[in-house]
Design a binder for these strands. Structure first.
Lengths: 142, 142
DNA sequence: GTAAGGCTTGACGCGGGCGTCAGGGCAAGG
DNA sequence: CCTTGCCCTGACGCCCGCGTCAAGCCTTAC
């Protein structure tokens, strides 16, 4: 199988495969005319890489899985190094999710506060003698 | 106030301020010798930008807040455009958090599955006549 | 013969928010 | 006069995973 076919079968591009090879992740044999040649096991490695990438793993983080498969293990995560990557990733995810949750809460509070302030302004404006509108209020609470 | 002092007072760098100016976010007056000159209101704008940046807002997303302040409003989020940015950000955060949560779950399941598989292997190995260990099991469940 | 479609390497672009270096000016103090 | 310390502009670097263009070779079909 040549590079185009492998790329198509894995739902990626030839550029990506050459990039992986340049990183030493997915080396290829060459046939007589210099073309890269792959087999089914390469497809397996590639699919492992792609799955992890979709999970947000960096390329380097996929390396233990690939090496594990190449070592003949049944799954990419059959080796301790892969499990370590899983655990690190879980920690990272938990930390990140917690941070994002905190930010979300803060932003939500800011929004609520700002909306309340605008509502108060609008109420004042509706009262005779209240402060005049300060700006283009076109997009008020609708 | 010159650029160095403003940067120090906002806890950032001169490079950052020049970058903001290049993006049109924080323009500066110039004094006789070409030095940038800022006042307290610029510090206010800068602090607004930095706060939002810390929340993970992109620079462009801070623009409505800055313009709102410059228009004379009491807060950067006193204007409808800023509220819209808040809302978009909340949506983005919710989406992202949900995605990360899903990934976290998947990775967690993969880890559990892989660990169970290794435990089964270890158990087999402890049984006389079981399959021989396939690899360096040094990092088993500890 | 030639056009097509796949393959090769090499190299630049991108996005975001700056860091960092190069090369030079301005003002004050010893 | 010289140093020190601030300021200036311009430009390249970084991170990451590729996209995309350039220029050219191999093979097959017509």
């Amino acid at each position: 199988m040549r590079i185009g076919e492998l790329a198509a079968r894995a739902g990626t591009t030839t550029r990506t495969l050459r990039y992986y090879e340049s990183r030493g992740l997915l080396p290829a044999r060459r046939n007589g005319n210099g073309y890269r040649t792959y087999d089914e096991s390469d497809l397996r490695l590639l699919r492992q890489i792609r799955t992890l990438q979709d999970f947000g793993f960096g390329l380097e983080e996929t390396r233990p899985f690939v090496e594990c498969l190449r070592a003949g293990h049944p799954e990419g995560d059959s080796c301790p190094a892969s499990l370590q990557v899983y655990r690190r990733k879980l920690d990272e995810l938990d930390t990140l999710i917690a941070e994002l949750g905190a930010v979300r809460e803060q932003v939500g509070r800011q929004l609520a506060r700002a909306e309340a302030a605008r509502a108060a302004l609008a109420a004042d404006a509706a009262v005779p003698g209240g402060p005049e509108p300060e700006c283009e209020l076109g997009g008020g609470p609708r």
